[in-house]
Nucleic acid binder design. Sequence first.
RNA 1: GACCCCAUCGUCUAGAGGCCUAGGACACCACCCUCUCAAGGUGGACACACGGGUUCGAAUCCCGUUGGGGUCGCCA
Length: 443
Amino acid sequence: MSDVRVRFAPSPTGLLHIGGARTALFNWLYARHFGGKLILRIEDTDTARNTPEAVAIIFKGLRWLGLDWDEGAQEGGGAKGDFGPYYQSQRMDIYKKYVDQLLAVDKAYQDPDGSVRFRMPRTPGVVKDLICGEITFDRTHEPDPTIFRKDGTPVFHFVNVVDDLEMKITHVIRGEDHLSNTHKHIAMFEALGATPPQYAHIPLILNPGGSKMSKRDEGASIGEYMDQGYLPEAVRNYLCLLGWSPKDNREVIAISEVVEKFDLPQINRGNARFDINKLYWLNGEYWKALTAEQYHAYAKEYLTQRGVDLSKIDAAYVTGVLDIVREKIKLGRDLPDWVEPFFNEEFSYDEKSLTVTLKEPEAKSRIEKLSAAFGGLGEWSAVKLEETLKALAAGDGVKVGVYVHPCRAGVAGRAVGPSLYHMLEVMGKERVLARLQRTLGKL
RNA sequence: GACCCCAUCGUCUAGAGGCCUAGGACACCACCCUCUCAAGGUGGACACACGGGUUCGAAUCCCGUUGGGGUCGCCA
């Protein structure tokens, strides 16, 4: 156990921002790599948008990503650790105490309107950043920042410093958007007679347009990934790759290995653009790696959440369908559509089936031949079905596709789908014959 | 506007002076496989922003330019 203490300090805005999630992840990785502690502090001084629901969204997002913390705010309003409260809204007395301390030694002063300003030192501000290196700021013209408003509430820069000091934070890992303000924070630490923590500013995540990812950008909220059926391990893996790399050309990498290799100096200094395509691909890799049990459980839960009632469907049929559909998709979002024609006897027919496949003059006779052949089948298996289709085609001197297409359309109403032979096998003889009859009735 | 950070394929990146006629991945294109769509396989196109230095030698070091991002709040 080391003395490393890092913190993640989100403000409840109603969503867990992807950039915030990555900051949380990097803090977590740093803490875990060095055997330190991760502290979760809720920065809710902006009372307007601070609601229990907004805080719950943060907890939910972090847990979904598999990030845990050792101290700080907990679900249900509780807290863990000796440096609480971990909600800034509950720490007003502490901030008051510290501002009085500054006032007493004239490191801060009161404005006529009642607000309090911090007296900026006019010496050069030196920031030694673990990622960006040493940066010196000229502060001869730096305005004195307000630290307490005229209404008596404290301002972010000040509470942030006080909390990091009080909570004995050793490393502050945060977005690069704070880099230019860091010298002010350091000055406040020093004015308070304390040693500032080590700072590390990580590059920003940019939207595809190239500017800082904002709440309104597509994909900005972790909640979207939960809803769309992304796997948390994949999202987490992708986030690791934004600004960090294992340096050996691998993309899919276990979190335990990232923990082992992670450190601040290797973090890239340039901003990274968010690329949903790569996340989508990565999700597919994790999707393929799921065990059958994990996949079934995930798929059933996702479908149930989407309002698909699986309780009335034969359990073996459900898993059979899930199995053949799996290789077609990369995430949960696509499940409902792929599964629909299997579970609904009143399935609809897609555009191509309707206007092309079933419109062919021979469609009817072919489906009739298929029905007849299927009806006479003793063993109902993919292999046998394949033989049957091929024999039918050979008899007519045509390619199997000639029979496959109307069959798929007749049995599922779709021009595309999983392997037809496996579809038929899973559906079972009775269902297949009934469906072909239904289609025939529509021709 | 001032200040700060950054700069390798469209995107994420490998590269820490010779191993680079710059490697990988996503996306893209072609072909193969094939019952459709995917997946998979093979191959292809695609980058060191520009200009000066330093050096025997620069993607790698220095300076400048340009470009991008960020910060300058009584938002966090």
